[in-house]
């Protein structure tokens, strides 16, 4: 804590807070007391509050993914999408019904056996708008950005696979450039 002189100077509540623990014992005992109280409060949360927290977490993780540099491989789009659907539906087929696609085609997308069609992306965007409306701001372009970010990452990470073959088909012999 700061000394008395500065305490007086800092009497305005919005200047800030010094809440550093003075000892490890104090940190542990405060943490234990807090945890007991939190567990009681957690038990009172409604299902919709829990779902809203999970959806906010998903949105923040997608935004984090978009800030990461390229070259990171993985099925991020379908992993995020699976998380989204499983958070708000008991059965994935119900989501398929809500966006008017067949459960089979949804399953193929989620298992990376087919690419999502444009209609799917449109409907996912509209669905997310409705879902996030009362939780937080959700950028319309987020799903698109995640999808294409993953494509860029995959393409750049797998250059050794596609470059030798494709290079044979590319030349600038007929271009105006010298």
């Amino acid at each position: 804590m700061e000394n008395n002189k500065s305490s007086n100077t800092l009497s305005s509540p919005e200047f800030g807070v010094d809440s550093r623990y003075k000892s490890l014992d104090k940190k542990l005992s405060d943490g234990k007391q807090l945890m007991e109280a939190r567990l009681k409060r957690l038990n009172k949360l409604s299902r919709s509050q829990v779902i809203n927290a999970k959806l906010l977490q998903l949105k923040l993780r997608m935004e984090d993914y978009l800030k990461q540099p390229n070259y990171q491989e993985g099925n991020f789009f379908t992993n995020f999408l699976t998380n989204y659907i499983d958070t708000i539906y008991d059965k994935r087929s119900m989501f398929a019904k809500d966006i008017n696609i067949t459960p089979v085609s949804l399953s193929q997308i989620l298992n990376n056996h087919r690419e999502p069609k444009e209609e799917f992306m449109f409907r996912l965007m509209l669905h997310s708008e409705l879902t996030y409306k009362h939780i937080c701001k959700f950028q319309k372009k987020t799903w698109y950005q995640v999808y294409y970010h993953e494509k860029i990452c995959d393409t750049m990470a797998n250059q050794n696979e596609w470059r030798p073959t494709e290079k044979k088909h590319v030349k600038i012999k007929h271009a105006v450039l010298k």
């Binding site: 509540p13 405060d30 807090l34 923040l60």
Partner: peptide, 24 residues
């Protein structure tokens, strides 16, 4: 938001202000 990103519905942010400013 950092706490939600890590812990979802279990998230908690704590602080220990002086009693005079706690009410605020």
């Amino acid at each position: 938001k950092l706490a939600i990103k890590e812990f979802a519905e279990l998230a908690c942010v704590s602080l220990k202000p002086k009693s005079t400013i706690a009410q605020h």
